[in-house]
Amino acid sequence: MGQTILKYTGKLLLLVLFQVVILNQIRFSGYMTPYVYVAFILLLPLNFPKTGLLILAFILGIIMDSFSDSLGMHTSACLFMAFLKPTVINIVSGKREYGDDISPTIKNMGIRWVIFYTFLMVFLHHLFLFFIEIFSFREFFSTITRAFLSSLFSTLLLIIGYFIFEKSTR
């Protein structure tokens, strides 16, 4: 139990630091702002307790918010994403059944499942975040474009990350 908590805390800190110190500093373009710290929620086991899921999403969001001065926005987006996680898994999996405690890794689920799942989750998060950020529907289509392009970019970075880390742990 203690080991699991330690593992999750380490993962969370690494992802947030990577996001804040590296990704937030490299500025690609106004249309592409990747947020990969959401991988923490994505990589939780499929049958992770739902209550814990929301609480972890809340903690992750608060930490991100305190770094980016967006008080509450990341928290709100993370919660939204975590809330829809079970639904997304159902949509992506279709009729397939999975055993207990399985992690959504490429080895376990196959590359197509992982890409589809990652993109859908990341897109939900980015869309919610960007709309919260401007807080109006005035720039409706440009916000959707931003969310879509940013999600593509985040997904690409995440898939590359999965390949690197899964290989090294094997």
Partner: peptide
């Protein structure tokens, strides 16, 4: 939790 987040915002 979402209400807390919005209060923060």
């Amino acid at each position: 939790l979402q209400i807390i987040a919005f209060i923060l915002i």
